[in-house]
């Protein structure tokens, strides 16, 4: 009888899985091992173009937290925007400051709106708590400010969320510029109503604080 480890077993199940329920079950048992050795297999799952399975793998990666960051940072697939969106979403939720460069670049240049949307949220929530990190915080805010002009409404929406988050949490030297940007998005020069609604709400919350 050959002894295989739980990890080997879970990976074998994943490779044998054919249907979505099988893939979900195998991915869940991989996540439940809570081990860094499962990271590369979980990242591979993000590229299967199966949202139900990818969301399970993403949750597992987020649970592993900072340990998963180095592998996630080198796994952006240029040809698969679905997979990129999951990677960026995982990094955004883990909030590790090492993701700053990647998120900044993704928000400014990725062609997929869902990737830019998650990148904006990530830049809003990076865990930058030490005083010496204030220049990094400012980079996040400047990246968000630039994305106010994004063509996609959902990216502008995510950007408003990010700017609101920054201004409520931190003192920023760019506060006036941010408020100007939000005012523009709340005015009739913005054609999408939900953007005007969200920008108005952000301004109310910032003024109240």
């Amino acid at each position: 009888m050959i002894n295989i480890s739980p990890l080997e077993g879970a990976i074998a199940d994943l490779q044998a899985a054919k249907t979505t329920p099988e893939l979900i079950r195998a991915t869940k048992s991989l996540c439940n091992l809570h081990t860094v050795d499962a990271i590369s297999a979980l990242i591979e799952v993000l590229g299967f173009n199966n949202p139900a399975v990818a969301s399970v793998a993403t949750a597992g990666l987020i649970e592993l937290g900072s340990q998963a960051v180095p592998s996630l940072l080198v796994s952006l697939d240029e040809k698969n925007y679905g997979s990129r969106a999951w990677v960026v979403r995982a990094l955004a939720s883990i909030r590790d400051p090492r993701s700053l460069d990647l998120l900044e670049h993704a928000l400014a240049t990725d062609i997929a709106p869902s990737v830019r949307r998650s990148a904006a949220r990530g830049l809003a929530e990076l865990n930058l708590i030490y005083p010496e990190e204030s220049s990094k915080l400012n980079r996040c805010l400047l990246a968000l400010l630039a994305a106010i002009k994004d063509d996609e409404w959902v990216v502008r929406y995510s950007t408003i969320f990010g700017i609101e988050m920054h201004l409520l949490r931190y003192n920023s030297t760019n506060k006036d510029q941010c408020i100007l940007g939000l005012k523009q998005l709340s005015s009739n020069s913005e054609s999408i109503k939900v953007i005007r609604l969200r920008a108005t709400l952000a301004l109310q919350r910032i003024n109240a604080s």
Partner: peptide, 12 residues
């Protein structure tokens, strides 16, 4: 309704 905006924030 701003509840909807809060829900949207949670899906970004």
């Amino acid at each position: 309704d701003t509840c909807v905006l809060d829900a949207m924030d949670g899906l970004l």
